[in-house]
Amino acid sequence: MASARTSGLRRVTDLLILGATVAFAILWLLPVIWVVAMSLKPNAELMRSTAGFLPVPFTLDNYIGLLKLDTVPRWLMHSLIVSVTMTCLVLVVSSMAGYAFARLEFPFKKTLFLLMVAGLMVPEQAVFIPLHTMVSGWGLHNTHFALVMPRVAVPIGVFLMMQFFRSVPKELEEAAAIDHASRLTIFLKIMLPLSVPAVTTLGLFTFIFAWNDFLWPLVSATKADMYTVTVGLASIQSNFAFSEGLGAVMASAVFASLPIVLLFLIFQRFIVAGVAMSAGK
């Protein structure tokens, strides 16, 4: 009898907690809903009042104006090129190095591994200034090369791939070794096809990181027509005299976030799995 009562009470508190969480989640989303609503209102209305979470009166003018302006689409293109290239390169070099550390025996393996892991401790702020002078010396600022290359050798990427390759049963490789397959063949034909989940996770994280990268693009891509969308948006807000009006600023923020939010909604399963994986489980 007592236990029936406690379990009833428990169900009520469960519902209360859930209700509070839902309310909090709505509060959490309000800024985003508000910004989206503003991006869909005419500037004249926004001059009068920015209040309200519904886009009434409704207009698409802010987005149409954005596409005509050509700056934001150009920034988006740069972000896309940089993010896709960086993701591909990170996947190639991380999976190769991860495979070597996971499955091959070679002299100085421990030393090399420690040298790589030590890189985890170095924050980008410790190297971004010398990196800047180095790239200046090459005369390569305001290029995609400069935006991508310093971000390709990521120790955590190698670490993730190594963890994954270690979990692949050894028998799969040994069967191929008997057939005198080379290491490269084994890597390409057996290991890589198996590593789709790990590659997807690492790829997603790299893409999101690349898209949102701020400090390095800010100092390297200094010409307005080489901005990535993250830096471009920053330049718009530090200069609030943006001639196109508040609605257009909000529209560019929404526009810039759309690819990454879509990616998140489609692949969120992998992203959450990736967090668990990087925690070393």
Partner: peptide, 29 residues
């Protein structure tokens, strides 16, 4: 020996980029 050679080749792309864009700038800094 073949394995060791393969390992170094697998590590080379990461290693070269790592040295150029992290190790070297750290010391240059």
């Amino acid at each position: 020996r073949r394995d060791a050679l393969a390992a170094y080749l697998f590590l080379a792309p990461f290693g070269l980029i790592y040295i150029t864009f992290l190790v070297y700038p750290l010391f240059k800094g």
